[in-house]
Simulated scan of single mutants.
Amino acid sequence: MITRKALTLADVQAIAAGAEAEAIKNDWKVSIAITDDGGHLLHFQRLDGAPTQSTYISQGKAKAAAFSRKPTKALEDIVGGGRNAFLSVPDMVLLEGGEPIIVDGVCIGGVGVSGVKSSDDAIIARAGIAKLGA
């Protein structure tokens, strides 16, 4: 048997609070999604004024980061580099703003943010993950 780490409710709440604080600090109106390593939604919040489509996009970014075990910017770059077949991967949003949650070299989940410029979405996601203390 393999023993592996997993996100607890307290972990998820810390990540969400850190991401929310970063968004509010910058007056960024976003949606924030957190998944486990299988891409299953553990937390979702849509800040006041966040675009409607950000609800779907943030969840897709979180799932993509968890599944791929890499930032979604890397996936966006794969497609941007001409590998259009990668667009056929189902249920994932291949835009910057999704970050994997890596602990001891293992991906235990993903954070996806949507609502502002993609590079700023990624800043929010990383700020949340930083609160995990991993």
Rank of each mutant, 00 (worst) to 15 (best):
17 A>I: 00
119 S>M: 13
32 I>Q: 02
80 G>Y: 15
59 Q>W: 00
106 V>Y: 02
112 G>K: 06
124 I>E: 04
10 A>W: 01
122 A>I: 02
74 A>N: 14
116 V>L: 02
90 P>M: 04
13 Q>R: 15
70 K>A: 05
52 T>Q: 11
129 I>R: 03
80 G>L: 07
46 R>T: 06
60 G>A: 01
125 A>C: 13
84 N>F: 15
78 I>T: 15
75 L>G: 15
27 D>Y: 02
82 G>F: 12
31 S>R: 04
40 H>C: 03
57 I>N: 11
20 E>F: 02
59 Q>C: 06
84 N>C: 05
105 G>C: 15
51 P>C: 07
83 R>P: 01
106 V>T: 09
21 A>T: 05
25 K>E: 08
105 G>P: 12
121 D>F: 05
23 A>Q: 13
50 A>L: 11
92 M>D: 09
43 H>A: 08
91 D>T: 06
129 I>P: 01
104 D>C: 04
70 K>E: 09
85 A>Y: 03
123 I>Y: 13
111 V>Q: 12
44 F>N: 11
49 G>F: 01
62 A>W: 10
120 D>A: 10
49 G>R: 03
45 Q>Y: 04
52 T>N: 13
65 A>L: 01
54 S>H: 11
129 I>D: 00
112 G>M: 07
11 D>T: 01
28 W>C: 07
40 H>K: 05
130 A>K: 09
82 G>Q: 06
123 I>R: 13
132 L>I: 09
102 I>S: 05
102 I>M: 14
48 D>Q: 11
70 K>F: 02
10 A>V: 01
80 G>E: 11
37 D>N: 12
93 V>M: 07
27 D>T: 06
67 F>Y: 14
43 H>Y: 15
27 D>G: 09
48 D>P: 08
123 I>A: 14
20 E>V: 05
71 P>M: 10
42 L>Y: 01
123 I>G: 05
113 V>W: 03
74 A>E: 15
30 V>F: 02
21 A>G: 05
61 K>F: 09
106 V>P: 05
55 T>G: 12
41 L>P: 04
60 G>K: 01
82 G>A: 14
33 A>M: 12
78 I>E: 12
43 H>D: 03
105 G>V: 10
64 A>G: 14
30 V>C: 05
128 G>W: 07
81 G>K: 04
40 H>N: 12
119 S>Y: 15
49 G>S: 04
79 V>H: 13
29 K>Y: 11
29 K>T: 13
32 I>T: 01
18 G>C: 15
35 T>H: 04
72 T>L: 03
55 T>P: 02
78 I>A: 04
43 H>K: 12
27 D>F: 00
65 A>R: 06
19 A>K: 08
68 S>N: 11
30 V>E: 08
26 N>F: 02
